[in-house]
């Protein structure tokens, strides 16, 4: 939605309406609008600069012989497991967080008493405000330790599923727990977007369903969820984008070693791209820095694709939905 702010046509009776409009444009006007436009263009330049400088600094790594890349097997062999780790952690987070976030959003919009609903929404937003380093410290020291019995239980009773093959890690600092921490971090994002669309459900649809004798859940299933589906999807994709790029929480929680594996509770999982950069960067020398920047470029492209897709879904919905 945009508001048309251009001065309207001059009142009837003045023939010089176009001239009168022009006469208002002063030098100050031109300078100010130029400044505003310049700031907008600067943002585009910065974003282009992000891509350009990442490419420039990643080039030496792309051109370097395979044996100089850490690991000695070339860039693809170095970044491949990291991409796998990144996707795996993000997918775990998404699988846990999405249903939970939808339920929380429903609770806030349709179940909680009206008077405290806004306050509850604020409490969930606080989850988003907590810095990632704090989540990292909490995950590594509290959650990981508390999860050890659960990991052993999973290994004992669900060990036949490849995901829980074990042997269970003794520290709890596993891919599964990293995914849980990420789920906590993206929960408020998905909740916020879902809450927004649930609130936009036309009141008449809801009341019509209730008037036909539907229970509250039937009303939600027939009126609210179909209306909010694209909102949930785009919220989940925004959460996915955040989970892919989350750094410090994973760097602190996941004790990474080893290559591609689907075993979530063992101690041999690959790091994520972002966590690997944070862990390796302080000790990296020249070519290592280029390699890390190249991996950052891959991460940038992945998140760019995910976020653009999410935004496209949101924007398309905004145009076609009857709401607003």
């Amino acid at each position: 939605m945009s508001i048309d702010t251009s001065p309207g046509p001059a009142p009837a009776g003045t023939d010089r309406s176009t001239n009168a409009n022009k006469a208002v444009v002063q030098p100050g006007d031109r300078i100010f609008s130029g400044l505003a436009k310049g700031a907008g263009i600067l943002i585009l330049v910065v974003l282009a600069g992000v891509a350009a400088f990442l490419v420039i600094e990643a080039t030496p790594a792309l051109l370097a012989p395979a044996d100089q890349i850490p690991g000695g097997n070339g860039l693809v062999a170095y970044i491949g497991p990291l991409v796998f780790g990144t996707l795996l952690a993000a997918v775990i987070a998404l699988v846990i967080a999405t249903p939970l976030a939808v339920a929380v959003a429903l609770f806030i919009t349709h179940y909680a008493p009206r008077r405290i609903a806004a306050g509850l929404g604020y409490v969930i937003d606080l989850l988003a405000a907590v810095p990632s380093i704090v989540y990292g410290l909490w995950g590594a020291s509290t959650l990981a330790v508390a999860s050890i019995p659960l990991l052993i239980w999973l290994e004992t009773y669900l060990g036949w599923i490849p995901l829980f093959a074990g042997p269970a890690s003794g520290t709890g600092r596993t891919m599964l727990i990293a995914g849980v921490v990420l789920a906590v971090m993206i929960l408020p994002i998905i909740t916020a977007v879902s809450r927004e669309v649930f609130l936009q459900t036309p009141k008449l649809h809801e009341e019509a369903a209730l008037a036909l004798g539907a229970t509250r859940w039937e009303m939600i299933r027939m009126a609210v969820l179909p209306f909010g589906r694209s909102g949930i999807i785009s919220g989940a994709m925004l959460g996915l984008g955040r989970a892919l790029g989350e750094t410090m929480a994973v760097a602190l929680v996941l004790s990474a070693s080893g290559g591609i594996t689907f075993n979530l509770i063992g101690s041999g999982n690959p790091a994520t791209i972002a966590a690997n950069i944070a862990l390796q960067f302080p000790e990296a020398n020249r070519l290592d820095v280029n390699v890390l920047i190249a991996s950052g470029l891959v991460l940038f492209l992945i998140t760019l694709a995910v976020n653009s897709l999410a935004r496209l879904i949101i924007n398309r919905r905004r145009e076609f939905s009857g709401a607003n």
């Binding site: 943002i43 950069i277 944070a278 976020n307 999410a310």
Partner: peptide
């Protein structure tokens, strides 16, 4: 396009923003 790219920019991972600054000042 500014609106769209501002939205995209919201999703830049913080570590990538850091690497951008590193790449910029390294260059």
């Amino acid at each position: 396009s500014i609106t769209f790219f501002v939205d995209v920019m919201t999703g830049i991972p913080s570590i990538v923003a850091g690497l951008f600054a590193v790449a910029l000042f390294t260059a």
